[in-house]
């Protein structure tokens, strides 16, 4: 009985946060990016907040639902954008999952955010290289992409920290 309630509650949490993430995801996709291929990835904030608040399993659900439903809404489902998005999300989840199991009590939203951003870009980069542009010259973009990933990771990290603080107050 308790498990049922718990899972129902968890479903609600997943649904709510996924909806929030999808909204951000869709909104962000409507804003033209200053540099092609570079996005702040505000929707990742939701994943990180859910991770620190509710754990990895919930975060994974939120993240994957966001990618799936978000792409259906934008109309990019199964397109290259979707594949890159999914690849990035999976890699982020794996990396933060490992970090979560190893050092849950040491890392805050900031650390996860930076790790997720780097994992995200590396996975997208490799996928782009392997699937779409198998060209050595692409490697010359990598330093820039990683630099941007670290910056967006820190920015999203501080936002996630702030959101998490308020959320904790709210829940209390």
């Amino acid at each position: 009985m308790t498990t049922c309630i718990a899972s129902e509650r968890q479903d609600h949490i997943i649904a709510w946060f996924a909806a929030l993430a999808i909204a951000i995801h869709v909104l962000e996709s409507a804003i033209p990016s200053p540099i092609p291929g570079i996005k702040i990835g505000l929707a990742n904030i939701v994943t990180i907040v859910v991770l620190v608040q509710f754990g990895w399993r919930t975060a994974a659900w939120v993240s994957l639902l966001r990618v799936l439903i978000g792409s259906l809404i934008i109309g990019s489902f199964l397109s290259p954008t979707f594949i890159l998005s999914l690849g990035g999300a999976c890699a982020s989840l794996v990396v933060i999952g490992v970090a979560y199991t190893l050092a849950r009590h040491h890392i805050s939203a900031m650390g996860y955010s930076v790790l997720a951003a780097i994992a995200h870009i590396l996975a997208q980069f490799w996928l782009a290289y392997l699937l779409f542009i198998p060209h050595q010259a692409l490697f010359h973009l990598l330093p820039i992409l990683i630099t941007v990933a670290i910056i967006t990771g820190i920015v999203n990290g501080s936002l996630a920290l702030a959101v998490h603080k308020r959320l904790k107050l709210l829940i209390q």
């Binding site: 890392i107 805050s108 330093p143 670290i150 990771g153 990290g157």
Partner: peptide, 25 residues
């Protein structure tokens, strides 16, 4: 932000020049 966060950021930033050097050598 925790010490582990800081370590992560510092390592990430410290590793950056490596990329620039490798790729834009």
């Amino acid at each position: 932000m925790t010490r582990a966060d800081l370590i992560i950021i510092v390592i990430a930033i410290a590793a950056l020049p490596l990329f620039y050097w490798q790729l834009w050598g």
